[in-house]
C-alpha cells in the first residue's frame, strides 16, 4: 500500500517553482480571499490567471484534469443542491407533477424545480469552488514539501511555545510511520486472510480485529524510535535554518493584493 504514496509536487525548471514558498502561499491565499466576494472582474482575472500560471510553471494539463475528475462528483452534488429550488406546492401535487404522464409536463416540472436564476447562482458558486481548488493544486504542484514546511515554521515563529525544530522532526517521523504503517496494515490483512478472517463480511468485526493489531505493531515501532532518538542525543536547541523572505517577492505580492483590491473597487 505504501506504493500509493506519491508526493503532489511536480518538479520543473520554471520561474514559478523558484519563487519563495511564502510568496506563493500568500498569493494563493489572496486569490482565494478575493473569490469570496462575488465580483465579475475579480472572477475573470483569477480565471484567466490560472492557465497563465499553469503554462508559466510548465505543469502538465493532465494534472488539472486528474484533479477535476477527483472533485467532479462533489462539485456536481454542490451544483445540484444549490440549483434545486422546489416549487411551492403541496406534497401530493409535487409527487403527481413529478410522475406526470407526458414528457412535456415532466420537462416543465423540471424547469420549475431548477429556475434560471438558481442555475446561474449555482454555476457561479461551483465555478468559484473549482477555482479555489485548482489554484491550491497548482500551488502544491510548484512548491516542494520541504520549502512549504519551512514557510509554515516561519509563520509559527512568533508563537514562542511551538518549537520549530520539534515540528520539523515530528513531520519527518510521521511520514516515516505512515509508510511503515501502510505496509503493516497490508501485513495484518494478509495474515487475517491466511486465517480465513477475510471471509467475514461484517465491517465492524473486521475493524475490531484489524485496528488493535495495527495499533500494537505501531506501539512497538514507537518505542524503538524513541530509544533510537534518545540514543542519538536528540536535542531541540539546534537552530533550524529558514532563508529570509526576498524583499522583491514581498513587494510583488503587495502589488497583486493591490490589483485585486482595485478590481473589487471598479
Amino acid at each position: 500500500m505504501a506504493r500509493g504514496l506519491a508526493l503532489h509536487y511536480v518538479p520543473r525548471p520554471s520561474g514559478v517553482h523558484r519563487l519563495d514558498a511564502r510568496t506563493k502561499l500568500f498569493a494563493v491565499l489572496a486569490l482565494t480571499m478575493a473569490l469570496f466576494r462575488p465580483d465579475g472582474p475579480v472572477y475573470a482575472a483569477v480565471t484567466l490567471g490560472l492557465p497563465v500560471a499553469v503554462m508559466a510553471s510548465h505543469l502538465p494539463w493532465s494534472l488539472l484534469v486528474r484533479t477535476l475528475r477527483g472533485w467532479l462528483p462533489f462539485l456536481a452534488l454542490i451544483f445540484m443542491v444549490q440549483a434545486f429550488s422546489p416549487p411551492d406546492v403541496s406534497g401530493n401535487a409535487f409527487l403527481s407533477a413529478a410522475a406526470a404522464p407526458s414528457w412535456a409536463a415532466r420537462l416543465s416540472f423540471l424547469a420549475a424545480c431548477f429556475p434560471r436564476e438558481a442555475l446561474i447562482q449555482a454555476g457561479v458558486g461551483t465555478w468559484r469552488l473549482l477555482l479555489m481548488v485548482l489554484w491550491a493544486v497548482v500551488f502544491t504542484a510548484v512548491t516542494p514539501a520541504r520549502d512549504l514546511q519551512n514557510a509554515v515554521l516561519w509563520l509559527l515563529r512568533p508563537i514562542g511555545f511551538l518549537p520549530a525544530r520539534r515540528i520539523a522532526v515530528m513531520t519527518a517521523l510521521s511520514l516515516r510511520f505512515f509508510a511503515l504503517l501502510l505496509d503493516d496494515l497490508e501485513e495484518v490483512r494478509l495474515a487475517q486472510r491466511a486465517r480465513l478472517a477475510g471471509r467475514n463480511r461484517n465491517p465492524w468485526r473486521r475493524l475490531r480485529t484489524t485496528i488493535p493489531a495495527l495499533f500494537r505493531k505501531a506501539l512497538g515501532r514507537s518505542e524503538a524510535t524513541a530509544l533510537a532518538l534518545a540514543a542519538r542525543g536528540y536535542r531541540e536547541d539546534l537552530p533550524v535554518h529558514i532563508p529570509p523572505w526576498p524583499p522583491k517577492e514581498a513587494a510583488g505580492l503587495c502589488l497583486l493584493a493591490a490589483l485585486l483590491a482595485a478590481l473589487h473597487l471598479f
Partner: peptide
C-alpha cells in the same frame, strides 16, 4: 495539528492518498 500540516504541505495523507492546500482552503 500535525496531520493538517502534513496534508497542507502536499503529503498524501488525506483520504485516497490526496493532499495539498486545496483540501484546507476548499469546502
Amino acid at each position: 495539528g500535525l496531520y493538517l500540516l502534513l496534508g497542507a504541505v502536499g503529503l498524501p495523507v488525506f483520504a485516497n492518498f490526496k493532499g495539498g492546500l486545496a483540501h484546507l482552503l476548499g469546502p
